[in-house]
Simulated scan of single mutants.
Amino acid sequence: MKNKIINLLSEKIESLSAEDISSMLEIPPKAELGDFAFPCFRLAKELHKAPPMIAADIASGIGETDFIDHIDVNGAYLNFYLRKDAFVKSMVKNSAADNFGSSEEGTGKTICIDYSSPNVAKNFHVGHLRTTIIGNSLYKIYSKLGYKVERINHLGDWGTQFGKLIVAYKNWGDEATVKEKGVEELMRLYVAFHKAADEKPELNDEARAWFVKMEQGDEEALRIWKWFVEISLTEYKRTYSLLGVDFDHYTGES
Score class of each variant (00 low, 15 high):
K4W: 13
G182A: 01
I141T: 12
P51A: 07
A192K: 07
E206Q: 15
Y250E: 01
E14C: 07
G34W: 04
R151P: 08
V88Y: 15
T234Y: 14
N94E: 15
N3P: 06
F100S: 08
K144H: 07
I166L: 10
G163M: 09
F100V: 06
E32S: 11
N74Y: 07
A44S: 15
F247R: 00
S103C: 01
I27F: 05
S137Q: 04
T177D: 09
Y139P: 00
I21K: 02
D198T: 09
R130K: 11
L9W: 03
F38W: 13
I54Q: 00
Y81T: 02
G75T: 02
Y142V: 06
I231Q: 05
S17R: 07
E199C: 10
P52I: 04
A209P: 10
D72F: 03
D174R: 14
S10Y: 15
K2P: 13
T131Y: 01
I58S: 14
L186W: 04
K237R: 07
K148E: 12
F80W: 09
V212N: 15
R42Y: 14
I21N: 05
N171S: 10
A209C: 11
D20N: 12
S117L: 06
P201M: 01
K140L: 04
Y190S: 15
D246H: 09
K89S: 14
I133Y: 06
P28C: 03
N153M: 13
E184Q: 12
S23Y: 15
L16Q: 07
E11R: 12
A18Q: 14
E202R: 09
K84N: 10
C112K: 09
L82K: 01
N171W: 01
F124G: 00
V178C: 04
E14N: 13
N7A: 13
A209E: 11
N74S: 13
V73P: 01
Y77E: 00
F67I: 11
V149C: 15
K148M: 09
L186M: 15
D248G: 04
P201F: 03
P52F: 11
T239K: 02
L47G: 02
E184G: 12
Y250H: 03
E104I: 09
I21G: 09
V183Y: 01
F38R: 14
D114Y: 05
K140S: 11
D114Q: 07
D218W: 07
I27M: 09
L9E: 01
